[in-house]
């Protein structure tokens, strides 16, 4: 698996996938739907799948002395690595906003979602949706990227809108907590996001492996 992951990083990946990790810094932007930062990270990953198709990467990988399902697992390992790195970047931003900048007026006077642990849980949910919808959709054919990405974009835009709206509903204001306010709730929301991300990724990987096994290349 180590070698296939190295191959993914050095041969298959588009440089844009790495550049778009920086969109995690969008968690600093006040008055902006910050979860779009997570979406832009997945947009960067989408470019790698475009490159995968253009460079015959799937056929090359399938001919290597590895099991066919390892080709799929390599892609998942790459995607999860990029998502993991961008999550760490977002988490660092959230920690700064929850501590040093917790009373900053630009963030306090912000009608949109605050960058807290709930937002981080939301970012993980978006990564999970990308893995569930786009990745398993891609491995239906191992070359069609448009349809699964469009479906993912529609779902993610609804998700971001819902997350932005939630704290405006009566009784849900605590989701927009500043600093360490409502810490238990924030932690629970982060854990829920992480759990959903893991479940969606594992389910998606299993589906993608069995789809790819049946594909004629």
């Amino acid at each position: 698996m180590r070698n296939i992951l190295i191959k993914e990083f050095r041969l298959s990946a588009s440089p844009l996938s790495f550049f778009f990790i920086l969109f995690g810094l969008m968690f600093f932007i006040p008055g902006y739907p910050i979860l779009l930062g997570a979406f832009f990270v997945t947009l960067g990953l989408f470019y790698s799948f475009q490159a995968t198709r253009e460079t015959n990467d799937i056929l090359y990988s399938a001919l290597l002395p590895i099991a066919k399902r390892d080709v799929v697992k390599g892609k998942y390992a790459f995607v999860c690595s990029v998502e993991g790195i961008s999550f760490l970047l977002m988490a660092a931003v959230v920690i700064v906003r929850m501590t040093l900048l917790k009373d900053s007026p630009v963030y306090r006077n912000n009608a949109l979602m605050n960058a807290n642990l709930f937002a981080l849980g939301g970012a993980l949910l978006i990564f999970g949706l990308f893995n569930l919808i786009f990745l398993s959709g891609f491995f239906k054919t191992a070359y069609k990227i448009g349809r699964p990405f469009v479906i993912y974009v529609i779902v993610v835009l609804f998700t971001v809108t819902a997350f932005e709206a939630l704290h405006h509903f009566p009784g849900l204001g605590a989701l927009n907590a500043f600093g360490t306010d409502s810490m238990t709730l924030q932690l629970l929301m982060l854990l829920a996001g992480a759990l959903l991300c893991v479940i969606m990724t594992v389910l998606s990987c299993g589906t993608a492996c069995s789809r790819f096994e049946k594909l004629d290349l």
């Binding site: 070698n3 041969l11 015959n56 290597l64």
Partner: peptide, 25 residues
């Protein structure tokens, strides 16, 4: 296995492709 027509990673240097390929054998 080799096929005459297909080329992998058209914009990568041959030495980079070889460096990855040899890890698998």
């Amino acid at each position: 296995y080799s096929t005459g027509a297909v080329s992998w990673y058209p914009r990568k240097k041959i030495r980079d492709i070889v460096d990855i390929e040899k890890r698998f054998y």
